[in-house]
Design a protein around this nucleic acid. Structure first.
Length: 537
RNA sequence: GGCCCGUUCGUCUAAGGGUUAGGACACCACCCUUUCACGGUGGUGAUACGAGUUCGAAUCUCGUACGGGCUACCA
């Protein structure tokens, strides 16, 4: 793998010239980096998709290139309204916005494959003319029959390949006249690639170096469907060419069909123009490739943002709604399969752009660990400036009915509780007591040791607080401890009860900080109210 | 079944032939804190197996096992 590094880098012209000086012609031809993310708008955008976006984006920005978003909507049967806009929202939230897209425009449009439909057939026809593809008139039923007829224990899923194609209805074994007749009659047909029988197709993947395939083992993939739309295989090659894509990153699940793409490049546009490939390792769930189901089953988000299936109305919660900061989300995704070789784990987007390199992407799949994911978010919340959290926290409060939030109060509260919040949504539980008098108390924490001495002590605290003319945490603490000392009570014995009085439970920031924020009246009200609860029962 | 990819603590990973195999999450203990956290210190814990190459292998080669992906007129 190390040896392949120099090979990979040559294409990027990053090898120091002391080691490798590319020919002048190559240097002059050095193209602007252009990468693309090409989702099909069929539903929620999951972790793996966002990571692919991230790696594309980082690579583009690092090399001063362009990041393009292309919508692969060639399957009309899978059209899902709203999915495209949803993808844009996700990119916007994560801050990984494309330079060119259906919405941003650009010079290489259209950026929706359905809008380029007419272009694809000419390339497919060209392939037929050159003998690299053929018309196939098989109906779905014919194909189904083929699969059952040729199915054996030895070969459970027969493919439409060189061993089968001469037994099917296609332009390879029909006469030219028959084919013309069928075509003229407007017979439904598709176009398949004719895989060579004895070739080895290999290419250099930026992550796994040399990968090779025997063409006789690859099936004759459909290139153009009967409805005139291209399949992914044709579209990805044509579009990458037309959009001048220089580097193509996609999930490892595409590796088996890579030889088809390489061959199409060879036949259509020349291998020298083919983008450099990088097949990204898969993000795994507890059982294989991470799926939406895993999220539901194990209780963690899988999609970037919440997605509601328009057909079933089923809602799948996203990382955003779960309480993740986009910075943390990006950070955790970046580290899932990549690291910079140091022990640094927290990276800003700018640092990632600076340090990212596709060669350091791991080749093995990575199991997603939600606990570690939450750790990243916690780190980001702790390190975030109060200003960066205020908008989201205030929104959360508003959703819960807390609207009396002025800036000074928010600053104070966020500063006090942010270290204790792993998710943005934790801010509610961690600060609700600033706004609401506790309804219930953790009596177990107080009752066993509750006695008359303490009761009298708090009565005195109330009197003292009523007269205190300097309402701040430090003064309150001093007074409180002084009263305790006079009554020969250890401060520790009354601190916890005070906390439960103000908060309701054993958690939260310093008690006197809380008292300072909620103010004199509310503090006294809470102590008084709690006193009767403690004394009762 | 076939093809392809992969395999270092439970998880994410570092280590470019020579390290007591390093870090992080999680877990445990202790310290700090008279709350909960934060923070600090320490601990448990890994090179899948077998051959080969080499003075020396986590690292290179081969085999085996295991895991994953693909095997649609879906992407």
């Amino acid at each position: 793998m190390r040896q392949a590094t120099s090979t990979r880098l040559q294409g990027l012209h990053l090898v120091p010239f002391t080691l490798y000086l590319p020919p002048l012609s190559l240097q002059l031809m050095s193209k602007k980096v252009r990468v693309r993310f090409a989702p099909s708008p069929t539903g929620g955008l999951h972790l793996g998709g966002v990571r692919t976006v991230l790696y594309n984006y980082l690579f583009a920005k690092k090399h001063g290139g362009d990041f393009i978003l292309r919508i692969e909507d060639t399957d009309q049967t899978r059209y899902v309204p709203g999915a495209e806009e949803y993808i844009f929202n996700c990119l916007k939230w994560t801050g990984l916005e494309p330079d060119e897209s259906p919405q941003h425009g650009g010079e290489y449009g259209p950026y929706r494959q359905s809008e380029r439909k007419a272009d694809y057939r000419q390339y497919a026809e060209q392939l037929v003319k050159d003998g690299h593809a053929y018309y196939a008139f098989d109906t779905p039923e014919d194909l189904e029959k083929m699969r059952t007829d040729f199915k054996t224990d030895h070969n459970p899923s027969p493919q439409y390949d060189h061993s089968i194609r001469m037994k099917m209805r296609n332009s390879l074994n029909l006469t030219a006249g028959e084919v013309k007749q069928l075509l003229d009659a407007g017979t439904k047909h598709d176009i398949r690639i004719k895989m060579p029988e004895n070739e080895t197709v290999s290419f250099t993947d930026m992550i796994r170096s040399e990968v090779s395939f025997e063409t006789s083992l690859v099936d004759d993939k459909v290139l153009l469907k009967a409805d005139g739309m291209p399949t992914y295989h044709l579209a990805v090659v044509v579009d990458d060419y037309l959009m001048k894509i220089t580097h193509a990153f996609r999930g490892e699940e595409w590796l088996p069909s890579a030889p088809v793409h390489v061959l199409l490049w060879k036949y259509l546009f020349g291998l020298e123009n083919m983008p450099q490939w990088a097949h990204l390792p898969l993000i795994l769930g507890p059982n294989g490739k991470l799926s939406k189901r895993d999220g539901a089953k194990y209780g963690f988000p899988v999609f970037a943002m919440s997605w509601t299936d328009p057909k079933t109305a089923e809602l799948t919660e996203g990382f955003k709604e779960k309480g993740f900061l986009p910075e943390a989300f990006i950070n955790l995704l970046a580290l899932l399969g990549w690291n910079d070789g140091t022990e640094q784990e927290i990276f800003t987007k700018e640092e990632l752009i600076e340090k990212f390199s596709i060669e350091r992407v791991h080749s093995g799949g990575a199991k997603f660990d939600y606990e570690k994911g939450k750790w990243f978010n916690h780190e980001w919340i702790k390190r975030s400036a109060i200003q960066n959290l205020k908008y989201e926290v205030r929104k959360l409060f508003a959703e819960k009915g807390i609207t009396d939030t002025n800036d000074a109060l928010m600053d104070k509260i966020i500063g006090l509780v942010k270290d204790r919040c792993t998710l943005l949504t934790d801010f509610y539980d961690q600060s609700v007591f600033f706004f609401k008098t506790p309804e219930q108390y953790d009596l177990n924490a107080v009752k066993p040791k509750w006695n008359e001495t303490k009761q009298l002590f708090f009565a005195e605290v109330i009197r003292n607080f009523e007269l205190s003319n300097d309402w701040n945490a430090q003064t309150l603490e001093n007074n409180f401890k002084e009263i305790a000392s006079i009554n020969q009570i250890k401060p520790g014995d009354v601190l916890l009860p005070l906390r439960v009085m103000l908060v309701g439970g054993k958690f939260g920031p310093g008690v006197f900080d809380i008292a300072e924020v909620i103010g004199r009246d509310e503090t006294i009200i809470r102590i008084t109210k709690a006193l009767s609860a403690f004394n009762a029962g």
